[in-house]
Deep mutational scan, measured.
Amino acid sequence: SFNTVDEWLEAIKMGQYKESFANAGFTSFDVVSQMMMEDILRVGVTLAGHQKKILNSIQVMRAQMN
């Protein structure tokens, strides 16, 4: 498990989005775990492969939080 959203993004090789997530207010796992595709688009993730990777990881995160 990760301590910060930045660490999580690095771990899934999506570190290039750290600033975008932070600027959009997605700075805690409570918020990130609620993200939908529209949120991912809003933070500027436009590549389908990256969207899928982030969404898949969020689903895993949700499962671990319950």
Rank of each mutant, 00 (worst) to 15 (best):
S1P: 15
F2M: 07
F2A: 06
N3M: 12
T4Q: 06
T4V: 05
V5P: 04
V5N: 01
V5F: 02
V5D: 01
V5S: 02
D6M: 08
D6S: 13
D6R: 05
D6A: 11
E7N: 07
E7H: 07
W8T: 00
W8I: 00
W8E: 00
W8Y: 02
L9D: 00
E10L: 06
A11C: 10
I12L: 14
K13L: 11
K13S: 15
M14W: 01
M14C: 07
G15S: 11
G15T: 07
Q16L: 06
Q16S: 06
Y17I: 02
K18G: 05
K18L: 05
K18P: 01
E19Q: 13
E19K: 13
F21V: 01
F21H: 00
F21T: 01
F21Y: 02
A22R: 15
A22E: 08
N23E: 11
G25S: 04
S28T: 15
F29L: 14
D30G: 11
V31W: 06
V32A: 02
V32G: 01
V32R: 00
Q34T: 13
M35R: 00
M35F: 04
M35A: 02
M35H: 01
M36I: 13
M37I: 10
M37C: 09
E38N: 08
D39G: 03
D39H: 05
I40V: 09
L41V: 14
R42D: 06
V43E: 00
G44C: 03
G44H: 03
G44L: 02
G44E: 03
G44A: 03
V45E: 01
V45P: 01
V45F: 02
T46K: 12
T46F: 11
T46Q: 10
L47K: 12
L47G: 07
A48D: 12
G49M: 14
G49N: 12
G49T: 14
H50F: 03
H50C: 03
Q51F: 05
Q51H: 04
K52Q: 15
K52D: 11
K52I: 14
K53P: 03
I54P: 00
L55S: 04
L55A: 05
L55W: 15
N56D: 15
S57A: 15
S57R: 05
S57V: 04
I58P: 00
I58W: 02
I58D: 00
Q59P: 03
Q59I: 12
Q59W: 10
V60M: 13
V60N: 09
V60R: 11
M61D: 03
M61W: 06
M61H: 04
M61S: 03
M61V: 06
R62I: 09
A63S: 13
A63V: 09
M65A: 07
M65C: 08
M65Q: 09
N66V: 12
N66Q: 13
N66D: 15
